[in-house]
């Protein structure tokens, strides 16, 4: 019973990381209709920045996280400005290939700067683990912080997109770019802002991911990136609550598959769940059903 509870908590924690990454995917997709495959590598850059701040500059973890967020936000906006903005009217596949080029670029730059040997990431959360039920249930503090961070981010984003002017214009642009422009919304600024938020979130996700699984390599971001993308699609890409739901579900499924079915086949199970869900609901759990017009 305790085991089940522990697995559930670990699943929610891993899922929270996926959810935070998936938010970046889903917001960018919603607004720019593009699959930003470089997003996974922004996570990796964020984790490296935090690692450098903590290990080389001996700064406190909080400063490291803020630095990582700052650098990733700038990075996201720069990537958007240089690589994606000129392709605004290009076919989606061209943008996809460019995103892959950016992903290669980030991975190989990281390889040159930080070399291929894995770095051991010290957790940003230095608190002792929480012991419940007289030592039967031990939850690491990273797990708790990850789940809390996820809840805070979700609430903040919901408020942001629902209440602020910028958030409202984001929703407007994702619904109809042309109409939004006619209403006086600066589409380019809005898209740039979306990339900034997504990349800032990616930095948080990277730090949390590496706090829980402490090996850091230039390829660290790829697999969580793909999984988070899967999560975004599972929840219905373009939908913010969908990304949350998809991420958490995917994390729980992955941990349970590892614990109760097979460690080796857990990835196959995760992807099989995605396929089954998409066959039943072709636009994801919370995705909008698109009507076909002739």
């Amino acid at each position: 019973m305790m085991n089940l509870l522990l697995n559930l908590i670990n699943g929610i924690s891993l899922g929270s990381v996926y959810a935070i990454i998936a938010l970046g995917y889903t917001m960018v997709y919603g607004i720019a209709k593009m699959l930003n495959f470089a997003h996974g590598d922004v996570i990796m850059v964020g984790a490296y920045i935090c690692y450098c701040a903590m290990s080389y500059l001996h700064l406190p973890p909080v400063v490291g996280v803020v630095m990582a967020m700052g650098v990733c936000t700038l990075l996201g906006m720069t990537i958007e400005r240089l690589a994606y903005k000129p392709l605004r009217s290009a076919p989606s596949l061209a943008v996809l290939i460019t995103a892959i080029g950016v992903s290669y670029f980030l991975q190989n730059s990281a390889l040159l700067i930080w070399k291929s040997d894995p770095k051991v990431f010290t957790s940003v959360v230095g608190l002792p683990p929480i012991t419940l039920f007289g030592g039967e249930l031990i939850i690491s503090s990273v797990t708790v912080v990850t789940v809390l961070a996820n809840i805070v981010i979700m609430l903040a984003l919901t408020t942001f997109t629902g209440k602020t002017k910028m958030g409202k214009s984001m929703r407007a642009v994702s619904e109809d770019k042309g109409a939004a422009q006619l209403m006086g919304i600066d589409v380019n600024k809005t898209i740039s802002m979306t990339f900034a938020i997504g990349s800032g979130l990616a930095a948080i996700a990277g730090v949390l991911l590496c706090s829980a699984y402490p090996t850091l390599m230039p390829t660290t971001g790829s697999m969580p990136g793909i999984k988070a993308f899967t999560a975004a699609v599972l929840g219905g890409i373009g939908s913010i609550p969908g990304a949350m739901l998809g991420g958490v579900l995917l994390g729980i499924i992955e941990i349970f598959a590892k614990a109760y079915i097979s460690t080796q086949l857990s990835d196959a199970i995760v992807f099989a769940v995605l396929i089954i869900v998409l066959l039943i609901r072709p636009t994801g759990l919370l995705g909008k059903q698109i009507r076909e017009k002739v």
């Binding site: 392709l87 290939i97 080029g101 950016v102 670029f105 190989n108």
Partner: peptide, 15 residues
């Protein structure tokens, strides 16, 4: 790294 840059530049140029 050069491969990546070439890839991005080609996509930007052809589009």
């Amino acid at each position: 790294l050069i491969y990546a840059v070439v890839l991005i530049l080609v996509m930007l140029a052809t589009n």
